[in-house]
Design a protein around this nucleic acid. Sequence first.
RNA 1: UCCCCGGUAGCUCAGCUGGUUAGAGCGGGUGACUGUUAAUCACUAGGUCGUUGGUUCGAAUCCGACCCGGGGAGCCA
Length: 495
Amino acid sequence: MPDFLGLPLPCWVLLRLAVRVSMTRILNTMQTASIKQVLGGEIAVGSEVTVQGWVRTRRDSKAGFSFIHLNDGSTFGNLQLVADKDLPNYDDEIRHLTSGCSLTCRGKVVESKGRGQSVEIQAGTVEVVGWVEDPDTYPVQPKKHSFEFLRTVAHLRPRTNTFGAVTRVRHAAARAIHEFFDEQGYYWINTPIITSSDAEGAGQLFRVSTLDLMNLPRTDEGKIDFREDFFGREAFLTVSGQLNVEAYCLAMSKVYTFGPTFRAENSNTARHLAEFWMVEPEIAFADLNDLARLAEDFLKFVFTRVLDRCSEDMEFFAERINPEAIERLRKLIETDFVRMDYREAVSILADSGENFEYPAEWGLDLQTEHERYLTEKHCKAPVVVMNYPDEIKAFYMRLNDDGKTAAALDVLAPGIGEIIGGSQREERLDVLKRRMAEHGLDAETYSWYVDLRRYGTVPHAGFGLGFERLLNYITGLTNIRDVIPYPRTPGHAPF
RNA sequence: UCCCCGGUAGCUCAGCUGGUUAGAGCGGGUGACUGUUAAUCACUAGGUCGUUGGUUCGAAUCCGACCCGGGGAGCCA
């Protein structure tokens, strides 16, 4: 028996237990279920449930009932509600439901008398939560829409089959990425969005400033005085978390970043966004071969999980978007990646007898047509091209002993080309300093980065993967603007 | 940024060698019919033909400029 004078704690425990029990009972009587649960057979036939969602289609039968297909985003399929004409709001409301209306339906789970679904809901009550103001102009109609049009209604496109599926696959892929790294002992490092350094020494940056553009403070020489700015210096949105994550790598050993990245490049293509998400793992005590293995394991893990958890969505992509969508992922999972040196790749291309538009020769980067030949014709497998000419690679990539190549790699996938780019990092203080000088980088800005080579440096390596490009590969959608909720491109940032 | 293509009903498009009142399918409304499944059938409403100048008796149609969108290239993730 609890002693209410001396020991109040057991009383609290009992009270909280009692509350929890009663809450559970309330929830059980309400039985609000997701459509995924109902269609997945989690709700027993014969039991009462409440479902909520948005109408996809309505069909009436003069025999005295209407069929309503409802979707709540929880799964690809729609749940069929059967609404009888005896319902009090049948004539006034139910027969006027159109695509996009939101509703709450309480009813009984029954085995379907029709074909096409195993279970359906015999509606007991149908409460219209939100009408569509003007059904005539509601943009998301039950018909085929162009992706181009749907981009203009980005706030409504998640109500379509395609974008619902993209949303679930995007989530599943993100989750798989975190799982992969977590299971292997990596730490997720939240590198800064605002930065004062340009990670590549190239690329256009978005400026971050609170200065009054109409009245800029000036130095004596007439230049803009950034000492007056919010951070007391110039600041930008990050173009990569790599440099920052390297520091954590040289303490935590295995780390990764996964977050938004910004590029102000004026490139308007199906593969570029001004704001996109990037995955960047970094491993210590590792070389380029370790990195190649990581990239291969990583891709195979993520694809396996997505196929496993989003089978219905993937079947939809295979049916409507790209017939190869599932098969090419399966094939990639089963196939060993081919590794070859850049030098070897160039000679294969030179001897191929193919009539390439651009030449393949030492010192030039591989073109899309070259990448496709290597993966689709020559190797018929994903290819990791390694050790590129030093001149075409960034300052932080490790100079190989030959003095001519950098320890960089690209993972090329059949059907899309480059999907991952990475390198072993230059860990030698003197070499790094020399290369920074050659690239004209400000030693002071990067002094902290150089410090990492001064204090307990180790060989380390990492790669970058554009998350949306990965999603394009998974879904078969060819435009990067269709795999991110609100795409930002030059001249375009609505919503 | 460069090259190519496009902008006609809420959406997808036809019409474009200039010539009465600009069409179809889907979607919306009304009705018929059916345990229906992107149902079917009938009727019906709905358009400043991207904007703007020009050529012409006459422009959705031809020409110029501009705006917007798409594809490709470069760059990259």
